[in-house]
Nucleic acid binder design. Structure first.
Lengths: 130, 130
DNA sequence: TTAACTGTATTATACGCATAGTACGGTTGC
DNA sequence: GCAACCGTACTATGCGTATAATACAGTTAA
């Protein structure tokens, strides 16, 4: 059964996309394996405290990307292949890195400063001093 | 006069927040100095191809954060102090770094892999191969 | 002074996201 | 077979974002 314990919903971004992202992260990190079972729409919506329609929207998006299979009446399951792993990994890790690198460069940082900053926040993400 | 040439609006995120972000980036990078003049709401909305109300919403948010001053009838100006620079820098650079680092760690990357990835995408953000 | 421009406010419409409630038919296990 | 559960679909409402069209008062420069 796919776990959603680590998913903390943030406001400001569409919930259904956060659910999609959680699944993709699980696929990339290996927490989700091929054939893993999803909680039912109703159960998952109760777990997350959101509307069943929101969960359904996330599942619909996941199915359109080929990351889960759904059949009326039966549970849904993850579809994890080397291809889907690579696609999700490219989308999440590299896409995020490119986005942050572009942003940091636009802010006037140099590569060395950027690398140092990543090193700093890697183990102490909550440090407040400046 | 504050420039908006480098601002390319993306769909999917609120336009008014993208305008706010553009100002904050300018403050952090030094492109915007204290007292710099903003284009009028109408002019800026025409430049960006968005509704004047959207620009007004961004300006209202900026004024509430103390990053610009607005007086009815007169132009608006940037308010750049060491404090606002530090606040924007912390919000943009460090916040983004923490966010990406947390994401990358959740995806199973190690620090060395993360640093190598940043190095890779720093100069070639559009590389497609994998 | 006055005309042009400014920031600001208002009403209305449209769309996406999220919610609420309900309903239908397929699958599963007893 | 049948009850319980499942995925799926639908209508309706509310909210935030973005648009459109005005309107009004303050500022500025000729």
């Amino acid at each position: 059964m796919i776990s959603f314990d680590g998913l903390r919903l943030e406001e400001g971004r569409p919930i259904y996309l956060q659910i999609v992202l959680h699944i993709k992260r699980g696929i990339v990190s290996g927490a989700i394996a091929d054939g893993d079972e999803l909680p039912s729409r109703r159960i998952l919506s109760a777990l997350l405290g959101v509307n069943p329609n929101t969960v359904q929207k996330a599942c619909r998006a996941l199915e359109e990307e080929g990351l889960i299979t759904s059949h009326a009446g039966a549970r849904s399951f993850a579809v994890v292949t080397p291809e889907t792993i690579a696609a999700c990994r490219a989308e999440l890790v590299r896409g995020g890195a490119e986005s942050w690198a572009r942003s940091a460069r636009g802010l006037g940082l140099g590569l060395d400063e950027a690398l140092e900053l990543i090193r700093e926040v890697w183990d102490n993400p909550k440090e407040e001093e400046q």
